[in-house]
């Protein structure tokens, strides 16, 4: 396995950007133990660590693939990635706090976060996208499929009706209802996040 220094080179960044399988594997090997350590020290489990790692890596890849991405200047990749991990875990704990008495404000690891890491980690748009992703997966499969077909694949209502065995007018109605359901779920998740 390559060493940690390799993961900081610009060549490695390019490989990650192109989602190179071996580079992703190396990224896991170098970063996952740090994430696991952090999550275990902040009332999480190994299972949580894997979930948070996956979500953070998606965000990290998405960020570095954007044309506007200017690099992280003096901040090393590791810190940048861990900044995202911290943010996501903080959000998860905030949600969990509603169901238990975990008090995130008293967690030393959280308080020791570099403010810079917090600032660079996630923008409002990214939070919103995360909420939409979560809400989409909570929708009934037929509603989700319909919205994906209609909005992503730009399939006409008439063609969707044929594929799903509905009438065209019912597809239009169902699309509207599915959108309402999605918006309701997004509002609910936003509310959960804001009320902590």
């Amino acid at each position: 396995m390559k060493n940690n220094a390799n993961i900081k080179s610009s060549e490695a960044l390019d490989l990650l950007r192109s989602e190179d399988h071996e580079m992703l594997k190396e990224f896991y090997v170098v970063m996952y133990p740090k994430v696991l350590d952090f999550i275990l020290q902040n009332v999480g489990t190994a299972c949580d660590a894997r979930d948070v790692f996956q979500d953070s890596l998606v965000l990290f890849l998405h960020k570095i693939q954007q044309e506007t991405f200017q690099g992280v200047d003096n901040i090393k990749w590791g810190q940048y990635f861990l900044g995202i991990v911290h943010k996501l875990w903080l959000r998860e704990l905030k949600t969990r706090r509603k169901q238990s008495f975990v008090d995130i404000s008293e967690m030393p690891e959280m308080l020791e976060l570099d403010q810079l890491e917090l600032d660079i980690a996630l923008s409002t748009n990214e939070w919103r996208r995360e909420l939409v992703h979560k809400a989409l997966h909570q929708l009934p499969p037929d509603c989700r499929d319909l919205l994906m077909m209609y909005y992503i694949d730009c399939v006409d209502a008439k063609d969707i009706a044929e594929k799903m065995g509905y009438t065209e007018s019912f597809v239009r109605l169902k699309k509207l209802r599915s959108l309402h359901k999605l918006k309701k779920l997004i509002l609910q998740y936003s509310h959960d996040l804001l009320n902590h």
Binding site: Y28, Q54, L61, R129, M148, I152
Partner: peptide, 26 residues
């Protein structure tokens, strides 16, 4: 905004599939 977020959701699912394959290999 919703459309843009739904597009991202699809992209996220694609990346998650890839990441899960790496994870399962490890």
């Amino acid at each position: 905004i919703l459309l843009e977020s739904i597009l991202y959701a699809k992209e996220k699912d694609r990346l998650l599939d890839k990441i899960r394959r790496v994870e399962s290999e490890l």
